[in-house]
Simulated assay, not measured.
Amino acid sequence: MAGKQHGRDAFVSQGFDSWNKRQSLRDHMGGIDSFHHKAKENCEFLLKEKQSISAAFNKQTKIEEKIVLDICKEIGKDVFSLLVDESSDVLKKEQMVIVLRYVDNRGVVKERFFGVVHVKDTSSLTLKAAIDDVFTRNNLSMSQLVIVGVAKKHDGVDDFFKQLSLVVNVVGGSCKRQDMLRESQRERVQMSIGNGELETGRGLNQESSLIRAEDTRWGSHFKTITSLMNLFPEVRHVLAYVEEGSTLSNRNQAFGILKYFKTLDFMFYLHLMYEILHLTNVLSKHLKKKDQDILEATSLVRRTMDALKSLRDTGFAKLLSKVFSFCQKHDINIVEMTENYVTSRGRKT
């Protein structure tokens, strides 16, 4: 290097001339802000393991793992709600942000950032698989999700949803049964139109089928209940067919479901969960709108809470009237409400 810059060309272009002169070495090293000293300082930093980039990343990872572990310990086996959002990073790679909301042992509602997961796309199946993986790695369970957990804390509701899942599996267990369901529905619709019981028009009386519910998508539970109520005669017809001519396991399942269909438990929970999930489903659809105003959203939540409170406080008689009407329509014996009622578990009420 030439001029007043530190270092001599003797050290870089013309061999190591004058290497034994101390002043030449000092000139090459330069002052405290010289390139030489800065390079030496950076080299020393690099050799210090605690100040390396990898060490910083490892330290950050350990902190994150401890935070996640503390959150999981705080939740324990209790229920929590899940908040999920998806977006893309600066490299246009899809990612999912997970936040957990729960109540700690002091009754304080907490909302904690749980992590960011990269996903190949933002379809519901991919996001569900990613959530399953996160839950598995952190010893959390889908059954702890608050709406699933609250439902399963009530024996009757838990039994109802188990039976509902079994109905979908048995009725949709083969193409023949699905075809039988559709054909039976078509015949009933034609007969009802002929009797003047159904109106005709565009979009009316379309073919439908039983919808399978998913634990993390409670709107699908509402659709399952709705489809069962609409296809109740056809479902009973298919179950009667299975009961008469199938494997022993399927016959026993069909027999058990048909027996459960005739209980007050089933009829009551069918209509109760329909009413509850109908209200929450309407709210959910409105909140998913991207142009939803925060004041309008707050008002919707308040109205939904008021409607649920009204259902709890004064809606029993109206609900029971719907249960009896449904039973009468489908030729199911109505219980005498003045007599003692024995539950499926043998308890008198």
Rank of each mutant, 00 (worst) to 15 (best):
Met1Tyr: 02
Gly3Ala: 02
Gln5Tyr: 04
Ala10Ile: 12
Val12Lys: 08
Asn20Gln: 04
Arg22Met: 15
Gly31Asp: 02
Asp33Pro: 01
Lys38Ala: 05
Ala39Glu: 02
Asn42Ile: 11
Asn42Val: 08
Phe45Cys: 09
Lys48Gln: 07
Ile53Arg: 06
Ser54Cys: 10
Ala56Gln: 12
Asn58Phe: 06
Lys62Val: 09
Asp70Ile: 07
Ile71Ser: 07
Cys72Ile: 14
Ile75Pro: 00
Gly76Ala: 00
Lys77Pro: 08
Leu82Ser: 07
Val84Ser: 04
Lys92Glu: 14
Lys93Pro: 07
Lys93Ile: 10
Gln95His: 08
Gln95Ile: 03
Met96Gly: 11
Ile98Asn: 05
Tyr102Lys: 06
Val109Ile: 15
Glu111Tyr: 06
Arg112Gln: 07
Phe114Lys: 03
Val117Glu: 11
Ser123Asn: 08
Ser124Thr: 14
Ser124Ile: 13
Leu125Glu: 15
Ala129Trp: 00
Ala130Val: 13
Ile131Ser: 02
Asp132Ser: 11
Phe135Thr: 02
Thr136Gln: 12
Ser141Val: 05
Met142Asp: 04
Met142Val: 11
Ile147Pro: 13
Val150Pro: 01
Val150Trp: 02
Asp155Trp: 00
Gly156Trp: 00
Val157Pro: 06
Ser165Tyr: 04
Gly172Arg: 01
Gly173Ala: 13
Lys176Trp: 09
Asp179Leu: 10
Met180Thr: 04
Leu181His: 00
Glu183Trp: 01
Ser184Met: 05
Ser184Ile: 06
Gln185Asp: 05
Glu187Arg: 00
Glu187Leu: 00
Glu187Tyr: 00
Ser192Trp: 06
Gly196Tyr: 01
Gly203Met: 03
Gln206Asp: 11
Glu207Asp: 15
Glu207Ile: 15
Ser209Asp: 13
Ser209Asn: 15
Leu210Met: 09
Leu210Asn: 11
Ala213Thr: 09
Arg217Met: 15
Trp218Tyr: 13
Trp218Met: 14
Ser220His: 06
Phe222His: 10
Phe222Asn: 05
Thr224Val: 15
Thr224Glu: 10
Thr226Lys: 08
Ser227Cys: 08
Ser227Thr: 08
Leu228Thr: 07
Pro233Trp: 02
Arg236Thr: 11
Tyr241Ile: 01
Tyr241Pro: 07
Glu243Cys: 12
Thr247Asp: 05
Thr247Cys: 07
Ser249Thr: 14
Asn250Thr: 06
Ala254Leu: 03
Lys259Asn: 02
Thr263Asp: 00
Leu272Lys: 00
Met273Asn: 04
Tyr274Phe: 12
Glu275Gly: 00
His278Gln: 03
His278Asp: 12
Val282Gly: 03
Leu283Asn: 02
Leu287Met: 14
Lys289Val: 04
Asp291Phe: 03
Asp291Pro: 04
Arg303Lys: 14
Thr304Met: 06
Ser310Phe: 02
Arg312His: 01
Asp313Asn: 14
Ser321Trp: 00
Val323Glu: 03
Ser325Phe: 02
Phe326Ile: 09
Gln328Lys: 07
Asp331Tyr: 05
Ile334Val: 15
Thr338Phe: 06
Glu339Pro: 09
Tyr341Met: 08
Arg347Glu: 05
